[in-house]
């Protein structure tokens, strides 16, 4: 019963992720694509849970759904003519496009069938505490360097995003 429910939940997350990803790619209006991306990010978080990566799932929800997506939607809002503008969806150069598609598909299939898939016998052990212990001891320097990286990202982003004087005029 639990096994069946777990399978059902897994397929639900697959459908949500792939379905909303299709909407993101194929919808002509950029605002709908942005909102569909919400479900894609969320579905991916669900799939991380099935991979027993609970911390990664939490970070996906916190950073991508909570942060990046907000930024994308804000970005869409400042797009000129968001409703009348449509993204061209014609296909050009189908034959040439087929080559990279086949190469990528081939590589993915190769990995899928040759990888040594390990099935862990103790699934879903919480990772957050173990990650934290490693971050605070073995990987202390990278952890502190991460804050410097974040600081650099913040200052750099502000330097680029700061409205210039002429923008105030509009």
């Amino acid at each position: 019963m639990i096994e069946l429910l777990s399978q059902a939940a897994f397929w639900l997350f697959i459908i949500v992720t792939v379905g909303s990803a299709v909407v993101v790619v194929f919808h002509k209006r950029v605002i709908y694509s942005a909102f569909a991306l919400l479900f894609t990010f969320f579905g991916v978080a669900g799939l991380y849970v099935f991979l027993a990566a609970d911390f990664l799932a939490a970070s996906q929800v916190l950073i991508y759904v909570g942060g990046i997506l907000t930024l994308i939607i804000f970005g869409v809002f400042v797009t000129a003519k968001i409703y009348t503008m449509t993204i061209p969806q014609q296909t050009h150069q189908r034959f040439l496009a087929l080559i990279p598609v086949l190469v990528i598909a081939g590589v993915l299939m190769y990995v899928l069938f040759t990888a040594d898939w390990k099935v862990i016998d103790h699934p879903n052990q919480p990772t957050t505490a173990r990650l934290g212990k490693l971050l605070l001891t073995t990987y202390l320097v990278p952890f502190e360097v991460a804050s410097v990286l974040l600081l650099a990202a913040l200052i750099g982003a502000m330097r680029l995003a700061r409205p210039r004087e002429e923008d105030h005029e509009q």
Binding site: F55, I63, F74, K133, A146
Partner: peptide, 17 residues
């Protein structure tokens, strides 16, 4: 929102800590 994302990542590090 840009500033928020940086501090969002900081919050993420607070969990394992």
């Amino acid at each position: 929102a840009l500033i928020f994302i940086v501090f969002d990542v900081e919050v993420l590090f607070l969990f394992p800590w």
